[in-house]
């Protein structure tokens, strides 16, 4: 079992539905305007926007970035208290209550995927009524990051413990994958060659973020296709 995710950048239109869904699912606090300006946004998932080309031939590129759930995660060995470690199903686990806030993991992460609780955050009414009871609310001084919605994975596994059912491909979906309107995000078991995510990950368009660092991410991106160029090529041939 090796949970992984593919993100088809060709399908992503940068709508940020995944970002909002992630916040709601995982009780990610909103830091407010002032702190946002200081660069303290806490979202576990962000849509990075890059511009390509010179005006007027400008293209916007969107890339949702979350914790890459690296197989060889640089954040794991540096934590002095095992607050971040590897689970047997390949998840890069963050144990909030174990964290003492050295923030070493965040500095070791080349993807800037980790967020820190700068203060004790409050949810203004009525938002405090819709906190997810499955996910702990973090206090100040703790590190947090994308968990691949571990509460949903474990929930499905517990359900399957009765022996009558098994966790089938597509049974578990993190909030981001569930809410993506263009279905750019696919979640599944990378060890199972028949799972959708596994099949997508073998596509010729597949690449991993900062692959040369050797962190072996379990989030696999699919390169966008430049339709204009390919159509031109087709017509030329």
């Amino acid at each position: 079992m090796r949970w992984g995710m593919t993100i088809d950048l060709d399908r992503c239109n940068g709508c940020e539905a995944c970002v909002v869904a992630c916040r709601a699912e995982n009780n990610v606090p909103t830091v407010g305007e002032e702190d946002c300006e200081k660069g303290r946004m806490m979202s576990w998932m962000r849509v990075e926007r890059y511009w390509e080309g010179e005006f007027p031939d400008v293209k916007a590129r969107f890339m949702p970035v979350l914790c890459q759930q690296c197989d060889e995660a640089p954040c794991e060995p540096v934590c002095p208290v095992y607050a971040t470690y590897h689970s047997s199903d390949g998840l890069n686990i963050q144990v909030h209550n174990r964290c003492i806030g050295t923030r070493f993991c965040a500095n070791a992460c080349p993807y800037t995927a980790r967020a820190f609780n700068w203060f004790d955050y409050k949810w203004d009414a009525p938002l405090d009524q819709q906190l997810n009871p499955e996910v702990s609310v973090r206090s100040r001084g703790m590190m947090e990051k994308c968990t691949f919605c571990v509460q949903r994975i474990r929930g499905a596994q517990i359900k399957a413990e009765d022996g009558k059912t098994t966790v089938k491909d597509g049974d578990v979906q993190p909030a981001c994958a569930q809410s993506c309107p263009s279905e750019a995000i696919v979640f599944g078991d990378l060890d199972d060659p028949t799972s959708r995510a596994s099949r997508m990950s073998t596509s010729g368009r597949a690449f991993r973020l900062l692959e040369d660092l050797g962190t072996k991410p379990k989030v696999i991106y699919l390169k966008p296709v430049d339709w204009n160029t390919s159509q031109e090529k087709e017509s030329a041939s």
Binding site: G39, R40, M42, A106, R114, F116, W118
Partner: peptide
């Protein structure tokens, strides 16, 4: 009392 947020640290400059 308030948290590390009273410093100028941010998501990239964790130190």
């Amino acid at each position: 009392y308030y948290g590390i947020g009273v410093t100028g640290y941010n998501r990239t400059s964790m130190w």
